[in-house]
Amino acid sequence: MTQLETSMAIMMKVFDTYAAADGKPGSLSKAEVKTLLEKELPQLIKGAKNKDDVDQMIKGLDFNGDAEVDFEEFAVLVAALACACHGRKGKK
């Protein structure tokens, strides 16, 4: 597989791993999102000014208002974070 194909496969695997924790493999609960962020993006959590910021970010991911984060909503988070990190590359 190419690097991009590998990256996509890893992203899908990460989502599926955390989404399966509560028996609903198609979406992440708030608790599952928090666990995913703590384990997969620990620097993001450490960089948050307060825990309410993290809760607001999680709430903001739920575009359809169903109190869960589906794969499409998760993909938006990953893409937004990648854009933010890429924009900061080289800036000190």
Rank of each mutant, 00 (worst) to 15 (best):
D16C: 12
L61P: 00
K89V: 12
A75N: 10
V54A: 00
L44V: 05
M11C: 13
K51D: 07
Q43Y: 07
M12R: 15
H86D: 14
K30D: 09
E38F: 02
R88P: 04
D62Q: 01
Q56D: 11
L37T: 02
D53C: 05
A31R: 13
C83I: 13
T2P: 02
Q3H: 06
A82D: 01
A20C: 11
V54D: 06
P42Q: 00
L41C: 07
L61C: 06
G26K: 12
E73H: 06
A80S: 15
K13V: 08
F63L: 14
M11I: 06
A84H: 11
A75C: 11
E40N: 12
E38N: 09
L77W: 03
E5R: 10
M12T: 12
Q56E: 11
H86C: 04
S29T: 12
M12D: 10
E72F: 03
V69K: 01
G47A: 11
V54F: 00
Q43H: 09
A20W: 08
T6A: 15
A80L: 13
L36Q: 03
E5V: 09
M57R: 04
K91H: 12
R88N: 10
E32I: 04
A82C: 14
S27R: 03
V33S: 08
M8Y: 05
L4C: 03
A48C: 08
Y18F: 13
D62Y: 05
K13L: 10
G26T: 08
K89M: 14
I10D: 02
L28M: 11
D53H: 07
L61A: 06
R88G: 04
T35N: 08
E32W: 09
K51W: 00
P25V: 09
E32S: 06
F63M: 12
I10R: 10
E40S: 12
L77H: 07
Q43R: 12
R88A: 15
L61M: 15
E5T: 09
V69E: 07
L28C: 01
K24G: 04
Q43W: 07
P25L: 03
T35H: 13
L36E: 06
E32R: 04
Q3A: 14
G47F: 03
A79C: 08
